[in-house]
């Protein structure tokens, strides 16, 4: 069901954990399945120098968190903000259609962490672009 890449990031999540003195923290819940993701970032000279996550969710959610944190580490805040869930899905070599929404969680979490940082810095938060999918599809049957 999941690609090897997904399984790799699920089995061996990168950047898991907490940054106690984080410069920005994002916490998002998935409205469709109730899962939770928390992202911690350290920022220096507009660059994300460290990032960690905690995730309560399915394999796709955990793998997306892991991949997303890898993708934004060392990037500027602007670059990190522009990273879409699609980029995460691509980097994971695909997700089953019913699991694409889990990667949206990662994108949202990062956005929140960045805005949390900006607010703490006395800057105005950036605005979310409208419209990403929280689609559902098949249900399992046994």
């Amino acid at each position: 069901m999941y690609s090897e890449k997904v399984m790799d990031h699920f089995m061996n999540p990168r950047n898991q954990g907490e940054i106690p003195d984080a410069d920005g923290v994002g916490e998002v819940g998935n409205p469709s399945c109730g899962d939770i993701m928390r992202i911690f970032i350290k920022v220096k000279d507009n660059i994300i120098t460290d990032v960690k996550f905690q995730t309560f969710g399915c394999g796709a959610a955990i793998a997306s968190s892991s991949m997303a944190t890898e993708l934004i580490k060392g990037k500027t805040l602007e670059e990190a903000w522009e990273m879409s869930n699609k980029a995460v899905v691509e980097a994971l070599e695909g997700l089953p259609p019913v699991k694409v929404h889990c990667s949206v969680l990662a994108e949202d979490g990062i956005h929140q962490a960045i805005n949390d940082y900006r607010i703490k810095q006395g800057l105005s938060p950036w605005e979310e672009k409208a419209g990403h999918a929280h689609g559902h599809d098949d249900e399992s049957g046994e």
Binding site: A61, I62, H136
Partner: peptide, 24 residues
């Protein structure tokens, strides 16, 4: 995610979790 880890250990089991049901 629990099922996936168990599967990795060769254990076949099931869950009533939303995330595995597709229907969310």
């Amino acid at each position: 995610s629990l099922l996936l880890l168990l599967d990795h250990a060769g254990i076949a089991a099931s869950t009533g979790s939303a995330c595995s049901s597709g229907s969310l």
